[in-house]
């Protein structure tokens, strides 16, 4: 897979309603042409964020304030579209209406890329508005990969699929989650949005090694990282996106940067949303980790440095 379809955008945050005014008032935005140069030529940790990710469904509307804000943000920052309702793993037919709304929004936004989750969100015509896990077996790989290929045909571009946090697994699974994720991405020829927090949460909930997960994902498929906070519910961890990123997840992120190199990184925060500065601070912490690791291979070109990193962790 050619990773140039998923350019390195730097360090971004999810665009959420409480921050609309702040983002629009901020002067750190820049034209797209200058943006790439800005990322390439960055010498230290900057104050702002480099890009935004939107929840696609929040903007699949006819008009009003959400689209007005989106257009204004789009003029100043690169945007990626991240969906929550594609329901790529469901046995219901793919919704033509949904796909056409997605294509219409993509036409308006011209996103850097489009992503959704490796899960199912409903069945029998009902929508659960949740990201439910799939069984990890060959039948599911074939089923999901065929549907991803169909989506990619309709929207005429490669998409990235994200690993979800989960609280249950199926008895009919015959492989690990990371084997399943890699197999689906290979079979569908799509990219992977690797959510580091989701790896950590699921590793705790199901008792597997988060490090083994990270080390088993094919680097050439990874297009984006997600970082988020979770909450400890005693018997399990909940992917609540309502807290700061914990130290263990940062540690895992460091491992991921070492393995995967220059991958656009995004901070998600969806509940008890703090001031924008808290999200920007998290994005800048990710930036510092990335730069620290990049300095290990200073003097080489970006691609050579990435190749070196991969050799080091192989």
């Amino acid at each position: 897979m050619d990773r140039s379809e998923f350019p390195f955008l730097g360090f971004g945050v999810g665009l959420r309603r409480p921050h609309y005014a702040h983002v629009l008032a901020s002067r750190s935005g820049r034209s797209h042409r200058r943006h790439r140069e800005h990322i390439r030529g960055r010498s230290g940790s900057g104050g702002g964020v480099d890009w935004f990710e939107i929840i696609s469904e929040n903007f699949m509307v006819e008009g009003g304030r959400p689209l007005e804000v989106l257009d204004a943000v789009r003029d100043r920052y690169p945007i990626a579209m991240h969906g929550v309702s594609l329901s790529i793993g469901s046995t219901d037919r793919l919704s033509r209406d949904y796909l056409s709304a997605l294509a219409k929004l993509a036409h308006r936004v011209r996103p850097a890329w489009i992503s959704d989750h490796l899960c199912w969100t409903g069945v029998g015509g009902r929508n659960l508005h949740d990201l439910l896990p799939l069984p990890f077996n060959d039948e599911a790989v074939a089923h999901v990969a065929a549907r991803i290929r169909r989506v990619q045909d309709v929207i005429e571009r490669r998409i990235a699929i994200e690993n979800v946090s989960s609280y249950m697994t199926y008895r009919c699974s015959t492989m690990t989650e990371w084997q399943f994720l890699a197999a689906v991405a290979a079979e569908a020829d799509c990219a992977i949005l690797l959510d580091i927090n989701n790896v950590f949460v699921s590793a705790f909930n199901h008792g597997f090694s988060a490090e083994e997960y990270i080390d088993s994902i094919p680097p050439e498929r990874v297009a984006q990282f997600h970082l988020a906070g979770h909450s400890d519910r005693g018997a399990y961890l909940l992917d609540s996106h309502d807290a700061p990123i914990c130290e263990e997840v940062w540690k895992l992120y460091r491992r991921a940067v070492l393995r995967f190199g220059s991958v656009s990184t995004l901070i998600e925060w969806d509940d008890k949303i703090p001031k924008f500065e808290a999200l920007a601070a998290a994005a800048n912490r990710a930036r510092r980790i990335y730069e620290e690791i990049r300095n290990l291979t200073q003097g080489r070109s970006g691609n050579a440095a990435d190749a070196e990193r991969r050799r080091r962790v192989a």
Binding site: H129, L132, Y167, M168, T169, Y170, R171, A235, Y236, L238
Partner: peptide
């Protein structure tokens, strides 16, 4: 339990209950 794996920490029904609770809470 015939479909969902349970373990010492959480029975399969308890694991499904997490999703059931979140469905109602989110909506």
């Amino acid at each position: 339990a015939a479909v969902i794996r349970g373990d010492d920490r959480m029975a399969s029904a308890d694991r499904v209950a997490i999703y059931a609770g979140m469905y109602v809470a989110r909506l």
